[in-house]
Each structure stands twice: as C-alpha cells, then as structure tokens.
C-alpha cells in the first residue's frame, strides 16, 4: 500500500511538472505575447520596456524564468502580469462558486443518471428505453452556453422565476444561493446525465448475464434485491470512477462554459478571462490545480473501488 501511494505521488508530480512546463512554453511561443510590452503600455519608450523586462526578469534564460515562476506559485507570491492581482487569492475567491456548482451538479447528475440508466436497462428495447435513449442523445448534443442562454431567456427574462446569473455566497443568503445555482446546476448536469446514463445502461446489460446474477435469482432473491445488491453494486463502479474525474475537471475550470454564461465568477471564468488577456500565470496555476485534482481524486477512487469491490481488495 505504501509503495502504491508513493508511486501514485511520483506519477502525479511528473504529470504536473510536464503540464506546467508545456503551458509555460506554449505562452513563451506567442510572437507578440511579450508581457513586458503589455505591462509597459502603448506609449512606452524602448528604455522603459527594457527596464520592465529587467525588473521582472524577462531578459533571463527561460529555465530561470520557469524556476522563478514555479517558486512564486508555491510560495503564494504569484501575481498576474497584466491584471495585477495575486493569483492564489483570486482562485480562492472563485472557489466557493465553483465548488457549489461542481458538487451540487455532481450529486444531481450522479443520482439522475443512476435512475435513468437503470430504468433504460430494465426496459431495454422497449418504448421507455427508446424515449430515454433519445433524451440522453439530446442531452449530449446541447452546448452548455446555448442551453444556458435559452434558460436565462425563458425562465429569467420572460417568466422571471430565476435570476439572470451571478453568484450569492451560501453564508450570505442560503435561499438566494440556491436560486442562483438552480439553472447552472441543471445546465451542467444535462450533458453528464446523457453520457452517464448510456454508460450505466450498457454496463448493467453486460452484468445482467453474469453467472452470479443467475445464481442470486435461483436462490430466490426478489428482483429488487438482485438489482440493487448484485447488479447495481457492480455496474456502479465505472460510473463512480468517471464521476470523480469529471468532478475534478469541473473544479479545475472544466465548467468554463457554464460559469461564463451564468457569470458565476468561479475558477473557470477566471481561466476564460485570463486566456482572453493572454495572462499566463493564472492559466498555469489553474491547469496545475486541475491536474492535481484529477490525479488526487483518481487515487481516492482507487480506494473507493477497493471498498466497493472485494475482488480488488483481495488481489492487492
């Protein structure tokens, strides 16, 4: 187990290192992305640009620049070149909105797709299954920003049921927090429900023909017990692992479209705005944060796996 954890950590550090290096080099490669020019402003003289370049160390070799940037990030001293704020503070202030969005939507899409997927599998080939299949297809075909715009227009402007966007802190006003998040939760969930329910449907259909399911039925267990204790328990494994990784991506800015269209000021929107301004530091930090979250949650999932599936526990 200790060896497993150490290997896991080393892999995580390697992936994070390469991702940070690639992102850093990507932005170095932009021809007119020179941050000194942006910092100096339009009317700067060549001398002023030279001074800024020297002050921020843009004239040093690239590996020195990379090393210093990483040091700044890990000591919490990473400042955005063009927007001026402390990146870690900015991410921290965006995190409550993103976490509320991620976990709220995550619970909705997980539970809904379990119900929908199970129903479609039980009724496989029949009318219910076909309707659910078409609904799932519609779900994965909707771009979040379009769905968001439609919902804001009809339920916000027209019907006046929900606010037009923005985020209210849970601690400030729980009711407002909830009403501001209902539409984003729904928008983010739709795509995942479509995808997850299809995956669950096919895993259940695979599991239904297993020997142990037949044995359980032969023992005289009720349909319900067979479904919950024998079929679902095994079929949920791939879903749970997908869920963990998707949540990690959503926290690390993966909900960039939903956050932007609802103006939630979360981590994703910060990434979107920074990319628009070619501001490398926030993007570096956010992509590293995502990689970290993905690898960390992948480890958590492995432990959950062992808990759900004794065969894994015995093999290890």
């Amino acid at each position: 187990m200790t060896r497993f954890i150490i290997r896991r950590l080393l892999a995580m550090i390697l992936v994070m290192f390469v991702i940070s290096l690639l992102t850093f080099l990507l932005f170095e490669a932009i021809p007119n992305g020179d941050p000194a020019l942006r910092l100096a402003g339009r009317s700067a003289t060549a001398l002023e640009i030279q001074e800024i370049r020297h002050k921020y160390g843009f004239d040093q070799p690239i590996y020195v620049q990379y090393g210093r940037t990483m040091k700044n990030i890990f000591t919490g001293q990473a400042y955005s070149y063009t927007q001026g704020f402390n990146v870690l503070d900015e991410i921290r202030s965006g995190l409550p909105a993103t976490l509320s969005l991620a976990f709220g939507a995550g619970i909705i899409w997980l539970l809904t797709s379990i119900v929908v997927g199970t129903l479609a599998a039980i009724k496989a080939g029949r009318y219910t299954d076909r309707v659910l299949t078409v609904l799932a297809m519609i779900g994965v075909s909707f771009p979040p920003f379009f769905l968001g715009a439609v919902l804001i227009y009809f339920l916000g402007y027209k019907a006046n049921i929900f606010p037009l966007g923005g985020y209210v802190k849970l601690t400030a006003n729980p009711v407002q927090w909830f009403t501001h998040l209902v539409l984003p939760w729904f928008t983010l969930s739709v795509l995942f429900i479509g995808f997850y329910s299809r995956v669950l449907r096919s895993t259940i259909l695979d599991t239904i023909n297993e020997d142990y399911v037949r044995t359980a039925k032969a023992k005289g267990l009720s349909e319900r017990q067979v479904l919950i204790r024998h079929i679902l328990r095994n079929s949920l494994i791939p879903i749970i692992s997908l869920w963990g990784l998707d949540i990690a991506q959503v926290i690390g800015g993966g909900a960039i479209l939903t956050e932007s269209v609802y103006n939630l000021h979360g981590v994703g929107q910060l990434a979107a705005e920074s990319i628009g301004k070619l501001d490398i530091i926030p993007i570096l930090v956010i992509t590293m944060l995502t990689a970290f979250a993905v690898v960390f949650l992948a480890a958590v999932i492995d432990i959950l796996y062992a808990f759900l599936d004794p065969r894994i526990r015995l093999a290890a």
């Binding site: 991702i19 628009g276 992509t287």
Partner: peptide, 18 residues
Amino acid sequence: AYPAVLLGVTLGTVLAVG
C-alpha cells in the same frame, strides 16, 4: 489530463494570436 475545453481554448488563443 487537461480538460478538453481548457486545452482547446489555451491552444486556440495562442494560435489565433500567433
């Protein structure tokens, strides 16, 4: 390991400029 949209937007912005 990159979220697809985040990677696409980063690459897209860099290449749209350069």
